[in-house]
């Protein structure tokens, strides 16, 4: 049972980070390879805000959430906007450069030493007994609920709101979308803001649970196989991919060795690519366009 609980937490983390990849890819066909660095940046921003407003944990959290949206927005406007309508590969290269740049900047600003935002907020991460001998830290439990809430929100947004539908339209056919009067920049900017928000939430929750240092970006990279397994343009796929990768990882840790955990996602990915290169839920033709 404890294993199931551990898997659930990891699924939540991977699904959150994965949704960031999917959001941007789905709307603009760009793979944001800086996703790991961005979630780390948001986590560090939370740390700094927690240091500043130690007495008001709620406002520190709210501020970090707002900043995560803002970071995505600013990145799009400053960096990615000029890539709109250009070749996708150029944009992907820009995100790689962005990731390297961010990593360097974060080491400069936050030194890369272990930071514990939870302590700064003055909170305790007490374990919660869930019955049947299962225990999870309270942050881990929160993580599961946050992931569910964000996914429900995203599904509702894309299905029932005008801008959600428009973002899907832009993702399928930007030219036609533009001809129908949809502002491409608005759709792309919203995708970036939402992606840094959901990825950032994962980063913040991870940092609250177990602190953060320079290695967090690796977790972002480990979530990349998750979305490839599920299919890059599908949120449902991201959940299933997270389920597969997280289960494999947790089981490998328990049955083989904790040291293999970082490799497992990529082993799953390779197995997957051999069978269905476009992922479980992805669109077949999409892979050809990358």
């Amino acid at each position: 049972m404890q294993t199931v609980a551990n898997i659930a937490v990891l699924v939540a983390i991977y699904a959150l980070i994965g949704s960031g990849y999917v959001l941007i890819y789905r709307v603009s066909r760009v793979l944001n390879l800086a996703q790991g660095e961005l979630m780390m940046l948001v986590a560090y921003l939370l740390f700094s805000l927690a240091t500043l407003f130690g007495g008001h944990p709620a406002s520190a959290l709210a501020g970090a959430v707002l900043l995560s949206l803002l970071v995505g927005l600013v990145l799009y406007v400053v960096l990615m906007r000029r890539m709109t309508g250009e070749l996708v590969i150029a944009a992907v290269l820009v995100t790689i450069a962005l990731g390297i740049l961010l990593r360097g900047l974060m080491v400069l600003v936050w030194t890369g030493q272990m930071a514990r935002p939870l302590e700064k907020l003055g909170w305790q991460n007490s374990p919660l007994a869930l019955g049947h001998g299962v225990a999870l830290s309270s942050v881990a439990v929160t993580t599961i609920f946050v992931a569910i809430a964000i996914y429900v929100g995203l599904f509702v947004f894309f299905r029932y709101t005008a801008w959600g539908v428009r973002m899907r339209a832009v993702g399928e056919n930007p030219l036609l979308a533009a001809q129908r009067g949809i502002k491409l920049h608005v759709a792309y900017a919203m995708a970036w803001a939402l992606a840094t928000f959901s990825g950032g939430c994962a980063g913040m929750l991870l940092a609250l649970d177990s602190g953060l240092d320079g290695t967090m970006a690796i977790i972002g990279l480990k979530a990349f196989p998750v979305v490839l397994v599920g299919g890059l343009d599908s949120l449902r796929g991201a959940i299933v991919g997270a389920l597969i990768v997280a289960s494999a990882e947790v089981l490998a840790i328990q049955l083989i060795d904790p040291l293999v955990s970082d490799v497992v996602p990529f082993v799953v990915l390779i197995a997957m690519l051999a069978v269905r290169p476009w992922g479980l839920f992805g669109t077949e033709e999409d892979i050809q366009r990358v």
Partner: peptide, 11 residues
């Protein structure tokens, strides 16, 4: 997109 969504996406 569905037919209705096609129409609703239009600005």
């Amino acid at each position: 997109l569905t037919v209705t969504e096609n129409l609703e996406a239009t600005v």
